[in-house]
Design a protein around this nucleic acid. Sequence first.
DNA 1: CTTATTTCGGATAAATTTATCCTATTTATA
DNA 2: TATAAATAGGATAAATTTATCCGAAATAAG
Lengths: 144, 144
Amino acid sequence: MFSKACEYGIKAAIFIATKSYEGERVSPKEIAQEIDSPQAFTAKILQALVKNDVVSSVKGAYGGFEIDKSQISSIKLSQIVNAIDGDSIYNGCGLGLHTCDEAHPCPVHDKFKAIRNDLKLMLENTSLEELALNIKSGVSFLKV
Amino acid sequence: MFSKACEYGIKAAIFIATKSYEGERVSPKEIAQEIDSPQAFTAKILQALVKNDVVSSVKGAYGGFEIDKSQISSIKLSQIVNAIDGDSIYNGCGLGLHTCDEAHPCPVHDKFKAIRNDLKLMLENTSLEELALNIKSGVSFLKV
DNA sequence: CTTATTTCGGATAAATTTATCCTATTTATA
DNA sequence: TATAAATAGGATAAATTTATCCGAAATAAG
Protein backbone atom coordinates (compact mmCIF):
# COMPACT_ATOMS: atom_id res chain seq x y z
CA MET A 1 0.00 0.00 0.00
CA PHE A 2 2.54 2.55 1.21
CA SER A 3 6.27 2.47 0.52
CA LYS A 4 8.59 1.48 3.34
CA ALA A 5 9.76 5.10 3.43
CA CYS A 6 6.17 6.25 3.93
CA GLU A 7 5.53 3.71 6.68
CA TYR A 8 8.60 4.96 8.52
CA GLY A 9 7.59 8.56 7.92
CA ILE A 10 4.13 8.09 9.38
CA LYS A 11 5.42 6.28 12.45
CA ALA A 12 8.21 8.82 12.93
CA ALA A 13 5.77 11.74 12.78
CA ILE A 14 3.52 10.07 15.33
CA PHE A 15 6.42 9.45 17.70
CA ILE A 16 7.73 13.00 17.34
CA ALA A 17 4.24 14.27 18.10
CA THR A 18 3.98 12.25 21.31
CA LYS A 19 7.30 13.70 22.49
CA SER A 20 6.42 17.22 21.39
CA TYR A 21 3.41 17.14 23.70
CA GLU A 22 5.97 16.87 26.50
CA GLY A 23 8.14 19.62 25.06
CA GLU A 24 10.92 17.23 24.06
CA ARG A 25 12.92 17.12 20.86
CA VAL A 26 14.01 13.75 19.53
CA SER A 27 16.94 12.46 17.48
CA PRO A 28 16.87 10.10 14.50
CA LYS A 29 18.51 7.54 16.77
CA GLU A 30 15.71 7.64 19.32
CA ILE A 31 13.07 7.67 16.60
CA ALA A 32 14.56 4.66 14.86
CA GLN A 33 14.59 2.74 18.14
CA GLU A 34 11.00 3.58 18.93
CA ILE A 35 9.59 2.76 15.53
CA ASP A 36 12.00 -0.09 14.72
CA SER A 37 13.46 1.37 11.54
CA PRO A 38 16.94 1.84 10.03
CA GLN A 39 18.36 5.02 11.52
CA ALA A 40 20.13 6.65 8.58
CA PHE A 41 17.26 5.91 6.23
CA THR A 42 14.82 7.32 8.73
CA ALA A 43 16.94 10.48 8.95
CA LYS A 44 16.58 10.88 5.18
CA ILE A 45 12.82 10.61 5.42
CA LEU A 46 12.78 13.16 8.22
CA GLN A 47 14.45 15.61 5.86
CA ALA A 48 11.53 15.19 3.48
CA LEU A 49 9.06 15.79 6.29
CA VAL A 50 10.95 18.93 7.28
CA LYS A 51 10.90 20.23 3.70
CA ASN A 52 7.17 19.66 3.56
CA ASP A 53 6.57 21.44 6.86
CA VAL A 54 5.25 18.38 8.66
CA VAL A 55 7.95 18.48 11.31
CA SER A 56 10.53 21.12 12.14
CA SER A 57 14.16 20.54 12.96
CA VAL A 58 16.63 22.38 15.15
CA LYS A 59 20.28 21.94 14.28
CA GLY A 60 23.18 21.93 16.69
CA ALA A 61 23.52 20.99 20.32
CA TYR A 62 20.25 20.32 22.10
CA GLY A 63 18.59 20.23 18.70
CA GLY A 64 16.38 17.55 17.23
CA PHE A 65 13.01 17.07 15.62
CA GLU A 66 9.77 18.46 16.97
CA ILE A 67 6.28 19.47 15.91
CA ASP A 68 4.65 22.66 17.11
CA LYS A 69 2.16 21.49 19.73
CA SER A 70 -0.53 23.79 18.38
CA GLN A 71 -0.20 22.28 14.89
CA ILE A 72 -0.42 18.58 15.74
CA SER A 73 -4.20 18.60 15.49
CA SER A 74 -4.23 20.23 12.08
CA ILE A 75 -1.64 17.95 10.45
CA LYS A 76 -3.38 15.24 8.47
CA LEU A 77 -2.13 11.81 7.44
CA SER A 78 -2.56 12.88 3.83
CA GLN A 79 0.15 15.54 4.23
CA ILE A 80 2.65 12.96 5.42
CA VAL A 81 1.80 10.45 2.70
CA ASN A 82 1.90 13.18 0.09
CA ALA A 83 5.30 14.40 1.26
CA ILE A 84 6.83 10.95 0.80
CA ASP A 85 4.81 8.91 -1.70
CA GLY A 86 3.00 11.66 -3.57
CA ASP A 87 -0.68 11.31 -4.44
CA SER A 88 -0.48 8.33 -6.77
CA ILE A 89 -2.12 6.04 -4.22
CA TYR A 90 -5.48 7.68 -4.68
CA ASN A 91 -4.99 9.64 -7.89
CA GLY A 92 -3.14 7.23 -10.17
CA CYS A 93 -4.82 4.51 -12.25
CA GLY A 94 -5.14 1.15 -10.52
CA LEU A 95 -3.78 -0.62 -13.59
CA GLY A 96 -1.18 1.99 -14.51
CA LEU A 97 -2.90 3.56 -17.54
CA HIS A 98 -1.58 7.02 -18.33
CA THR A 99 -5.03 8.42 -18.77
CA CYS A 100 -7.83 6.79 -16.87
CA ASP A 101 -11.04 8.69 -16.26
CA GLU A 102 -14.78 8.43 -16.88
CA ALA A 103 -14.30 8.98 -20.59
CA HIS A 104 -11.47 6.45 -20.92
CA PRO A 105 -11.59 4.12 -17.92
CA CYS A 106 -9.38 1.13 -17.19
CA PRO A 107 -11.23 -2.13 -16.52
CA VAL A 108 -11.29 -1.60 -12.77
CA HIS A 109 -11.85 2.15 -12.76
CA ASP A 110 -15.37 2.09 -11.35
CA LYS A 111 -14.59 -0.70 -8.94
CA PHE A 112 -11.66 1.22 -7.52
CA LYS A 113 -13.24 4.63 -7.48
CA ALA A 114 -15.14 4.17 -4.23
CA ILE A 115 -12.30 2.43 -2.44
CA ARG A 116 -9.71 4.97 -3.44
CA ASN A 117 -12.00 7.82 -2.52
CA ASP A 118 -12.58 6.27 0.89
CA LEU A 119 -8.84 5.97 1.29
CA LYS A 120 -8.37 9.59 0.31
CA LEU A 121 -11.05 10.79 2.72
CA MET A 122 -9.63 8.70 5.51
CA LEU A 123 -6.13 10.14 5.01
CA GLU A 124 -7.47 13.67 4.78
CA ASN A 125 -9.63 13.31 7.87
CA THR A 126 -7.19 11.54 10.13
CA SER A 127 -5.12 13.95 12.21
CA LEU A 128 -1.70 13.32 13.67
CA GLU A 129 -3.28 14.26 16.99
CA GLU A 130 -5.59 11.29 17.31
CA LEU A 131 -2.86 8.87 16.20
CA ALA A 132 -0.39 10.31 18.72
CA LEU A 133 -2.91 10.31 21.57
CA ASN A 134 -3.67 6.64 20.96
CA ILE A 135 0.03 5.86 21.20
CA LYS A 136 0.38 7.86 24.39
CA SER A 137 -2.58 6.11 25.98
CA GLY A 138 -1.30 2.68 24.98
CA VAL A 139 -4.25 1.92 22.71
CA SER A 140 -2.05 1.40 19.65
CA PHE A 141 1.60 0.60 18.98
CA LEU A 142 4.47 1.76 16.81
CA LYS A 143 6.44 -1.47 16.65
CA VAL A 144 6.57 -5.30 16.87
CA MET B 1 -1.40 -0.26 -4.96
CA PHE B 2 -0.51 -3.25 -7.11
CA SER B 3 2.97 -4.11 -8.38
CA LYS B 4 3.73 -3.53 -12.04
CA ALA B 5 3.78 -7.30 -12.48
CA CYS B 6 0.28 -7.52 -11.04
CA GLU B 7 -1.02 -4.72 -13.26
CA TYR B 8 0.32 -6.54 -16.31
CA GLY B 9 -1.10 -9.83 -15.05
CA ILE B 10 -4.60 -8.45 -14.60
CA LYS B 11 -4.62 -6.79 -18.02
CA ALA B 12 -3.15 -9.89 -19.69
CA ALA B 13 -5.80 -12.14 -18.15
CA ILE B 14 -8.54 -9.81 -19.34
CA PHE B 15 -7.16 -9.73 -22.87
CA ILE B 16 -6.73 -13.50 -23.00
CA ALA B 17 -10.33 -13.86 -21.83
CA THR B 18 -11.66 -11.61 -24.61
CA LYS B 19 -9.84 -13.73 -27.18
CA SER B 20 -10.85 -17.00 -25.58
CA TYR B 21 -14.50 -16.04 -26.08
CA GLU B 22 -13.69 -16.18 -29.78
CA GLY B 23 -11.83 -19.46 -29.45
CA GLU B 24 -8.46 -17.88 -30.14
CA ARG B 25 -5.17 -18.49 -28.40
CA VAL B 26 -2.79 -15.58 -27.98
CA SER B 27 0.99 -15.18 -27.76
CA PRO B 28 2.97 -13.08 -25.29
CA LYS B 29 3.82 -10.81 -28.21
CA GLU B 30 0.20 -10.08 -29.02
CA ILE B 31 -0.66 -9.68 -25.36
CA ALA B 32 2.19 -7.23 -24.78
CA GLN B 33 1.04 -5.16 -27.74
CA GLU B 34 -2.55 -5.06 -26.59
CA ILE B 35 -1.82 -4.16 -22.99
CA ASP B 36 1.27 -2.04 -23.68
CA SER B 37 3.72 -4.01 -21.56
CA PRO B 38 7.26 -5.40 -21.96
CA GLN B 39 6.94 -8.72 -23.77
CA ALA B 40 9.49 -10.92 -22.00
CA PHE B 41 8.44 -9.68 -18.59
CA THR B 42 4.82 -10.31 -19.46
CA ALA B 43 5.71 -13.85 -20.49
CA LYS B 44 7.19 -14.43 -17.05
CA ILE B 45 4.02 -13.23 -15.39
CA LEU B 46 1.96 -15.50 -17.64
CA GLN B 47 3.93 -18.46 -16.29
CA ALA B 48 2.81 -17.51 -12.78
CA LEU B 49 -0.79 -17.29 -13.95
CA VAL B 50 -0.47 -20.73 -15.56
CA LYS B 51 0.96 -22.23 -12.37
CA ASN B 52 -1.93 -20.79 -10.41
CA ASP B 53 -4.49 -22.14 -12.87
CA VAL B 54 -5.77 -18.74 -13.93
CA VAL B 55 -4.88 -19.28 -17.58
CA SER B 56 -3.78 -22.40 -19.44
CA SER B 57 -1.02 -22.65 -22.00
CA VAL B 58 -0.48 -24.84 -25.03
CA LYS B 59 3.10 -25.33 -26.13
CA GLY B 60 4.33 -25.78 -29.65
CA ALA B 61 3.07 -24.68 -33.02
CA TYR B 62 -0.42 -23.17 -32.98
CA GLY B 63 -0.09 -22.96 -29.20
CA GLY B 64 -0.55 -19.96 -26.98
CA PHE B 65 -2.47 -18.85 -23.92
CA GLU B 66 -6.17 -19.30 -23.37
CA ILE B 67 -8.79 -19.53 -20.67
CA ASP B 68 -11.51 -22.15 -20.68
CA LYS B 69 -14.62 -20.26 -21.77
CA SER B 70 -16.71 -21.92 -19.10
CA GLN B 71 -14.35 -20.77 -16.35
CA ILE B 72 -14.07 -17.10 -17.20
CA SER B 73 -17.09 -16.22 -15.08
CA SER B 74 -15.80 -18.03 -12.01
CA ILE B 75 -12.29 -16.55 -12.06
CA LYS B 76 -12.10 -13.65 -9.63
CA LEU B 77 -9.72 -10.70 -9.59
CA SER B 78 -8.54 -11.88 -6.18
CA GLN B 79 -7.11 -15.07 -7.71
CA ILE B 80 -5.01 -13.09 -10.16
CA VAL B 81 -3.76 -10.64 -7.53
CA ASN B 82 -3.02 -13.48 -5.15
CA ALA B 83 -1.08 -15.40 -7.78
CA ILE B 84 1.25 -12.45 -8.37
CA ASP B 85 1.30 -10.16 -5.33
CA GLY B 86 0.06 -12.51 -2.64
CA ASP B 87 -2.45 -11.37 -0.06
CA SER B 88 -0.39 -8.68 1.67
CA ILE B 89 -2.50 -5.90 0.15
CA TYR B 90 -5.44 -6.72 2.33
CA ASN B 91 -3.89 -8.94 4.99
CA GLY B 92 -0.62 -7.17 5.88
CA CYS B 93 -0.34 -4.28 8.33
CA GLY B 94 -0.68 -0.83 6.78
CA LEU B 95 2.42 0.38 8.63
CA GLY B 96 4.44 -2.83 8.31
CA LEU B 97 4.15 -4.13 11.88
CA HIS B 98 4.81 -7.85 12.13
CA THR B 99 1.82 -8.40 14.35
CA CYS B 100 -1.08 -6.03 13.99
CA ASP B 101 -4.52 -7.08 15.21
CA GLU B 102 -7.25 -5.97 17.57
CA ALA B 103 -5.11 -6.84 20.58
CA HIS B 104 -2.00 -5.08 19.29
CA PRO B 105 -3.05 -2.62 16.59
CA CYS B 106 -0.86 -0.20 14.66
CA PRO B 107 -1.96 3.45 14.78
CA VAL B 108 -4.00 3.17 11.60
CA HIS B 109 -5.37 -0.33 12.13
CA ASP B 110 -9.00 0.66 12.68
CA LYS B 111 -8.89 3.33 10.01
CA PHE B 112 -7.63 0.86 7.46
CA LYS B 113 -9.77 -2.07 8.41
CA ALA B 114 -12.87 -0.96 6.55
CA ILE B 115 -11.00 0.15 3.46
CA ARG B 116 -8.95 -2.99 3.18
CA ASN B 117 -11.98 -5.14 3.72
CA ASP B 118 -13.82 -3.27 0.96
CA LEU B 119 -10.82 -3.87 -1.28
CA LYS B 120 -10.81 -7.55 -0.42
CA LEU B 121 -14.53 -7.90 -1.08
CA MET B 122 -14.23 -6.03 -4.34
CA LEU B 123 -11.42 -8.29 -5.57
CA GLU B 124 -13.28 -11.40 -4.48
CA ASN B 125 -16.54 -10.33 -6.09
CA THR B 126 -15.20 -9.04 -9.39
CA SER B 127 -15.10 -11.72 -12.07
CA LEU B 128 -12.85 -11.84 -15.06
CA GLU B 129 -16.03 -12.13 -17.11
CA GLU B 130 -17.40 -8.68 -16.39
CA LEU B 131 -14.00 -7.06 -16.96
CA ALA B 132 -13.55 -8.88 -20.27
CA LEU B 133 -17.07 -8.08 -21.48
CA ASN B 134 -16.51 -4.38 -20.79
CA ILE B 135 -13.36 -4.51 -22.89
CA LYS B 136 -15.17 -6.29 -25.72
CA SER B 137 -17.99 -3.77 -25.72
CA GLY B 138 -15.60 -0.83 -25.70
CA VAL B 139 -16.74 0.45 -22.33
CA SER B 140 -13.26 0.22 -20.80
CA PHE B 141 -9.70 0.07 -22.11
CA LEU B 142 -6.50 -1.89 -21.59
CA LYS B 143 -4.02 0.76 -22.63
CA VAL B 144 -3.07 4.42 -23.14
C1' DC C 1 11.29 -37.74 -38.88
C1' DT C 2 12.10 -33.10 -39.66
C1' DT C 3 10.97 -28.52 -39.27
C1' DA C 4 8.82 -24.47 -37.76
C1' DT C 5 6.53 -22.60 -33.92
C1' DT C 6 5.73 -21.81 -29.33
C1' DT C 7 5.97 -21.93 -24.12
C1' DC C 8 9.33 -22.85 -20.20
C1' DG C 9 12.91 -21.57 -17.39
C1' DG C 10 17.50 -20.12 -16.08
C1' DA C 11 20.92 -16.42 -16.35
C1' DT C 12 21.66 -11.82 -16.56
C1' DA C 13 21.00 -6.80 -16.73
C1' DA C 14 18.75 -2.36 -15.68
C1' DA C 15 16.11 0.49 -12.69
C1' DT C 16 14.21 1.62 -8.44
C1' DT C 17 13.83 1.37 -3.58
C1' DT C 18 15.93 0.69 0.65
C1' DA C 19 19.85 1.35 3.50
C1' DT C 20 24.58 2.89 5.06
C1' DC C 21 28.54 5.95 5.63
C1' DC C 22 30.99 10.03 6.00
C1' DT C 23 31.73 14.95 5.85
C1' DA C 24 29.89 19.64 6.10
C1' DT C 25 27.23 22.88 8.46
C1' DT C 26 24.83 24.71 12.30
C1' DT C 27 24.27 25.99 17.12
C1' DA C 28 24.16 25.98 22.37
C1' DT C 29 27.16 26.26 25.97
C1' DA C 30 31.37 26.54 28.61
C1' DT D 1 36.15 31.49 20.68
C1' DA D 2 36.51 26.64 21.12
C1' DT D 3 34.07 22.53 21.61
C1' DA D 4 30.67 19.19 21.52
C1' DA D 5 26.32 17.86 19.71
C1' DA D 6 23.13 17.71 16.25
C1' DT D 7 20.86 17.95 11.46
C1' DA D 8 21.87 18.28 6.22
C1' DG D 9 23.24 16.21 2.35
C1' DG D 10 26.17 13.82 -1.01
C1' DA D 11 28.23 9.40 -2.30
C1' DT D 12 27.81 4.74 -2.19
C1' DA D 13 26.09 0.03 -1.39
C1' DA D 14 22.59 -3.61 -0.87
C1' DA D 15 18.20 -5.49 -1.95
C1' DT D 16 14.22 -5.81 -4.63
C1' DT D 17 11.57 -5.15 -8.65
C1' DT D 18 11.39 -4.72 -13.39
C1' DA D 19 13.05 -6.15 -17.74
C1' DT D 20 15.85 -8.70 -21.35
C1' DC D 21 18.09 -12.64 -23.58
C1' DC D 22 18.78 -17.17 -25.01
C1' DG D 23 18.71 -22.10 -25.14
C1' DA D 24 15.72 -26.20 -23.84
C1' DA D 25 11.53 -28.66 -24.29
C1' DA D 26 7.19 -29.52 -26.43
C1' DT D 27 4.03 -29.95 -30.31
C1' DA D 28 1.48 -29.50 -34.80
C1' DA D 29 2.04 -30.20 -39.57
C1' DG D 30 4.34 -31.49 -43.73
